[in-house]
Amino acid sequence: MIRVDNLSVNYGAVRALREVGFEAPSGQITAVLGANGAGKTTLLRTISGLVKPRQGAIYIDEFDVVGIATENIARRGVGHVPEGRGVIEELTVEENLRLGALSAQVNLTDALNEEYERFQVLGERRKRHCSTLSGGERQMLAMARALIARPRVLLLDEPSLGLAPQVTAQLMRTIAQLCETENLTVLLVEQNAKSALRIAHRAVVLHLGSVVANGAAADVAADEDLRRYYLGVVTS
């Protein structure tokens, strides 16, 4: 579970987040929606400790992680798939996965096999350099690399970016499945509100750093004004 309380972040004089508060329950997908510059990426980066907030608290399973170093937050079970996926191109598929498993208490061989079973294409390409992977394969690798450490919380930043619609649809199904089978708390940042709302249980809408809506995904999806003004989805 993630609970964000009264969280504010400044970049110099610019307010990136203003008194943001919401809760993302375990075993559910919480979509974080909003236009470019709404503060979605900043929110994830603050949760991971890459950005220091001006005020507020971030509870991961009742433990406030504000002020803790990024690597230690990761070691507490927070998997973060950053914007642009963060696959290390110069390394092979397997090296990327091994990196993900290093800081966790897992049996490497078992964990690798499990991810290769989950994402079979990665198993076929395990010795390949990541620079040879397609966008969809990179996204799968980034997800597998986060999952291999057995996280309790998964932060996904625009996973659908640059992917073809069918690939996006498949990816969303995978995320929904994972959330259920692994009892993950998923925070799904998306500009593509439509595909995110289809699988999310809850949704938080950000606008210029503030929360303008927070509730069940179905309610947010049904709210005509929200859709028109903040999500850029006109037809349903």
Binding site: A69, A74, P82, G86, L102, S103
Partner: peptide, 18 residues
């Protein structure tokens, strides 16, 4: 592996707990 990753992608490496 950790040395190489830290040099190639420090921020991603930290997100992976390195």
């Amino acid at each position: 592996l950790q040395l190489r990753a830290s040099a190639l992608a420090p921020e991603v490496s930290r997100l992976l707990g390195i």
